[in-house]
Design a protein around this nucleic acid. Structure first.
Length: 421
DNA sequence: AAGGCGGGGTC
DNA sequence: GACCCAGCCTT
């Protein structure tokens, strides 16, 4: 790369940015805490999605000290629906580190910022450059795409080594005294013009010297190996409506502190033994049961009508086995699909009653298919153990505003309460 | 280096 | 319905 090419690119881009930048809430000022929060939210998340979350979050936790002092469930609730919830926990941990180590002020030192929980190379560069105007690169997916195209780089951007290489390139392009604007300009161009699918080359400020376009490769760059497809899972969920003192309330549980959807609340559910096996059982059972009530939230299959005695049996057995939760599934309620990056959940929701167990006592191996199809599993009231496991509780609709649920269960619960009003 | 970790959008 | 969007952490 010649110095003329670099200065052409940088000055054209900077000029374009200053005339075209969007008005975004985190561009109101240069408060490093505000920049930090925005950058964490913007990881893997689009601007339009982030804006309302950002406004709410900043109102509730306006400073690192406020965030550090907040109860964790409140932070999680504020993040509800945004995804990748470890970001929220890490951000709060980072805020506590800022309070303890730096008296509540985000440090303007690269190493100190990088050592904060949840702050990696990209976020550190973004904070250093945008908040403090220090000449550090901030290379995200936008930047890798823009620079891959402009310099016609054929490196696979899915490889960690490529990010390191592009960081060096990006660092060399930063104009004197304009690190913050330049880094934002790169990302803004990637978001508005140099888009993944159909890049708007004709409106691009650096089109004339774009090597990728000159080579006719703007549509094939950047090179990126595909992620492997998500694995399908069938999840059997219990919609348990309480009686007596819990009348009208629904039984929910909190997930473990680590792993998928950590600390979030949900309906009790189990992994159906085998996707293929379950499908075979379903076919053998000839499930033509009519829907009891409740909407079919979304349809993943073609003309399946839902509800399967073998699944009801599995739900009862596995909840007892895994959680010590005794319930009796009564009827199929609905179905919804939920797509994560690495898993696809097909969630089958069954209405269930609390306090029942299988007559034959101890959980057995999978019930014989024919038996499952032709007879209902025999249940009896369990008088002895009607206690809930400790991570379980009954909630009314009002308590939905206090507990954080992933979207898939928010959809189910909102639908349920809408129907029972 | 590879995989876990949510939830969206476009065409 | 098939495609796309990705940064930090753990292993």
């Amino acid at each position: 790369m010649t110095t003329e090419a670099a200065s052409y690119f940088s000055s054209e881009l900077l000029g374009w940015y200053r005339g075209n930048k969007r008005d975004l809430p985190w561009r109101l000022n240069r408060d490093p805490y505000r920049i930090w929060v925005s950058e964490v939210m913007l990881q893997q998340t689009r601007v339009d999605t982030v804006i309302p979350y950002y406004e709410r979050f900043m109102e509730k936790f306006p400073t690192a000290a406020a965030l550090a002092a907040a109860p964790e469930p409140e932070v999680l609730k504020c993040w509800e629906g945004l995804g990748y919830y470890s970001r929220a926990r890490n951000l709060q941990t980072g805020a506590r580190e800022v309070v303890e180590r730096h008296g509540g002020a985000v440090p303007d030192d690269k190493e100190a910022v990088s050592s904060l929980r949840g702050v990696g190379p990209y976020t550190a560069g973004a904070i250093m450059s945008i908040a403090f105007n220090k000449p550090e690169p901030a290379v995200d997916g936008n930047v890798m795409r823009v620079l891959s195209r402009f310099f016609c780089l054929e490196d696979d951007i899915a490889k960690p080594a490529t990010r390191v290489k592009i960081e060096k390139l990006a660092a060399a392009l930063i104009p004197e005294g304009a690190a913050g604007d330049f880094n934002q300009a790169l990302m803004e161009l990637g978001a508005l013009v140099c888009t993944p699918k159909s890049p708007g080359c004709l409106t691009c400020p650096v089109m004339l010297h774009c090597e990728g376009r000159m080579a006719g490769k703007e549509h094939v760059l950047p090179i990126k190996t595909k992620a492997k497809p998500p694995r399908p899972e069938t999840r059997l969920a219990a919609l348990v409506v309480g009686s007596g003192e819990h009348a009208g309330k629904v039984l929910v549980r909190q997930r473990p502190a680590s792993g998928l959807l950590a600390q979030m609340w949900e309906l009790p559910h189990v992994l159906a033994p085998q996707a293929g096996e379950a499908a075979a059982q379903k076919a053998a059972a000839g499930c033509g049961r009519k829907r009891a009530r409740g909407a079919q939230l979304s349809v993943s299959g073609s003309q399946r009508s839902g509800g399967d005695p073998a699944q009801m049996d599995q739900l009862c057995r596995l909840l007892a086995q895994e959680e010590g939760l005794l319930i009796r599934p009564v009827s199929w309620w609905g179905e919804t699909e939920h797509i994560f990056s690495h898993i696809i959940w097909d969630v089958q929701v069954y209405q269930a009653e609390f306090g029942f167990r299988l007559k034959d006592g101890e959980p057995q191996t999978a019930l014989d298919q024919t038996q499952a199809a032709e007879s209902l599993v025999p249940y009896e009231i369990d008088t002895g153990s009607s206690e809930l496991p400790t991570n379980y509780r009954y909630i009314g609709v009002e308590e939905m505003s206090e507990l954080a649920f992933p979207n898939v269960f928010l959809r189910i619960l909102r639908d349920y309460w809408e129907l029972t009003e």
